[in-house]
């Protein structure tokens, strides 16, 4: 189901972020389109789960693209080339090209980051962070939050069922909905806080406040080569970005 992983998650995340930065730096629709076609699409297709990722990208980015097109396509007071005048709304060429630029940028943004995130092995990422000596509190909060999300969603569903079993019927008005939200959230929060208080004791007992470097049960999948590669990628992007932004200013 999952593709065979070649690089460490940290490397892949960094690559994704740097790609986003490059798209922002260059800020031309040609470049965004090229990244989209040459990098994002192949990455999604070869991810091993193209359907899920494709669907997620569509769900996340689709409404944004559409509403952005409507907003800038119809309302762009700065635009001078009027293609159609619809009373208060005017379709302008500038508005459409702005919408296209932003749309492409958002597509790359979503495609790159979601592909990286949805093929990400969270345990491996946490193990790498631990092996690289990241702050243990950060690793705990990130790991624990990611682990809690499905648990919280499941518990919320169970509580909703339990409340229905004792007579909760969700009404239509906003106040009724707010009340329904509270009948679910309150026991959810109380239950989670009770767990958290026990987890507090557990962390104490398991020596979480110790100051030595934490170790990981999972082996280190990071390699010296990748560590160097990450630094090189970072440096190249930094140099390129500076050059790209400064050169036009210097050369006038």
């Amino acid at each position: 189901m999952r593709r065979r992983r070649i690089y460490n998650p940290l490397t892949e995340l960094l690559a994704a972020v740097l790609l986003v930065v490059l798209v922002l730096v260059v800020n031309r629709w040609e470049f965004s389109l090229a990244v989209l076609v040459l990098v994002v699409v192949p990455a999604v297709v070869s991810s091993g789960r193209p359907r899920q990722i494709g669907l997620a990208v569509a769900v996340v980015a689709g409404p944004l693209l559409l509403s952005s097109l409507l907003l800038h396509g119809l309302f762009y007071p700065e635009g001078s080339t009027v293609l159609a005048d619809l009373g208060p709304a005017r379709v302008t060429a500038e508005g459409l090209s702005f919408a296209a630029l932003m749309g492409l940028r958002m597509s790359v943004f979503t495609g790159v980051l979601l592909t990286a995130a949805m093929t990400l092995e969270v345990p491996e990422l946490l193990a790498t962070m631990t092996h690289r000596g990241w702050n243990r509190k950060l690793v705990f909060v990130v790991g624990s939050a990611v682990g809690l999300i499905p648990h919280v969603a499941l518990r919320a569903r169970q509580i909703t069922r339990a409340q229905q079993a004792r007579g909760l019927v969700v009404g239509r008005g906003p106040l009724a909905r707010l009340r329904a939200l509270l009948t679910v959230t309150t026991p959810l929060v109380i239950g989670l806080l009770v767990d958290a208080s026990e987890r507090n004791h557990m962390l104490g007992a398991r020596g979480f406040s110790s100051t030595v470097a934490r170790t990981s049960y999972l082996p280190d999948t990071d390699t010296p080569g990748q560590r160097i590669a990450r630094r090189v990628m970072l440096a190249v992007t930094a140099v390129f970005s500076t050059a790209w932004l400064i050169l036009p200013v210097v050369t006038g």
Partner: peptide
Amino acid sequence: AQGAWGQLSMMSA
């Protein structure tokens, strides 16, 4: 303690 959930770190897969 009672109730196993509070004793999981929740960060272990």
